[in-house]
């Protein structure tokens, strides 16, 4: 049963990764527009064109 010492932390760690990933998607507003997201994936230019004049701070 020694293997439990590794397996349980791994299981919980994986769960935590999932939880933090969810929190991150939530925080970055990825659930704000589910309708739009399902179409954006189909468009080629889903990356908004870079704006040269705007130095992002």
């Amino acid at each position: 049963m020694d293997v439990l010492i590794f397996l349980i932390p791994i299981a919980i760690g994986l769960g935590l990764i999932g939880l933090f990933a969810f929190m991150w998607t939530l925080k970055s507003g990825q659930y704000e527009d589910l309708e739009g997201a399902r179409w954006r994936i189909l468009s080629d230019d889903d990356v908004t064109p870079a704006k040269p004049e705007e130095p992002k701070s």
Partner: peptide
């Protein structure tokens, strides 16, 4: 989005749900 992004410094994002 494409139409408005050609204007200088404009970032536009449409929310299709709302």
């Amino acid at each position: 989005e494409r139409g408005l992004c050609t204007l200088p410094s404009v970032a536009a994002r449409v929310n299709l749900t709302t």
